[in-house]
Design a protein around this nucleic acid. Sequence first.
DNA 1: CGCATAGTTGGATGGTTGTCAAACCATAAA
DNA 2: TTTATGGTTTGACAACCATCCAACTATGCG
Lengths: 105, 105
Amino acid sequence: MRPLPHPATGDIQLTEVLRALSDPVRLEIVARLASHGEMTCGDAGDALGVHKSTASHHYRILREAGVVLTKQEGRLKFMSLRREDLDDRFPGLLDSVLSATHAVA
Amino acid sequence: MRPLPHPATGDIQLTEVLRALSDPVRLEIVARLASHGEMTCGDAGDALGVHKSTASHHYRILREAGVVLTKQEGRLKFMSLRREDLDDRFPGLLDSVLSATHAVA
DNA sequence: CGCATAGTTGGATGGTTGTCAAACCATAAA
DNA sequence: TTTATGGTTTGACAACCATCCAACTATGCG
């Protein structure tokens, strides 16, 4: 289980987080991570119907923005939300975005 | 005081709002609108050091995303935040973003 | 070792973005 | 009606983005 480079909590930039969340595919990934806990890259590709390299691209953006944590275990990479870090830095932001994704139409 | 076309509250899209807020210039505009109440396009250009056409461009994006309300009065156009509409559609989102803009470094 | 699996990387592509400058439009004042 | 002022629109341009495909890397299993 090796860690990968992530921005420190204090280095997370608001505009980058908002930018990362402003894509429908990434927002869906985040919503799924919020409810399912963890996810591999392949899961995202299957669930969202995008090419695996596209999913990988989105994961990188989410990771570099500080939204998700990626840890390698064996030959899989598990992604999870950095809930505490985000809540520490931008209180309430993630929660409001997540509840907004549940809003209808 | 003539109104301009704006999206209805129910038509405001989460990804578009996040996208609109993911630019430093626009985020600064929104922060100023939150504290100063209203602003003209010229004010924004002066305060942010961008060309007036650039400011106009950003206002359009904010307006079309449903973040700001634009009303014409004489030859000036006043922009204001659609706080109630946003709070109605995405509760807590605007507040958390605004308080996040106050976060240091 | 050889093979399969999970992701990443690089290239290509079509589309979007932020910016400025110059021209344009609309309103008010002289 | 002419002039000045506040914004918008258009064009141009460089940068970036989402996507796919193909090739590559890395890890684990026989």
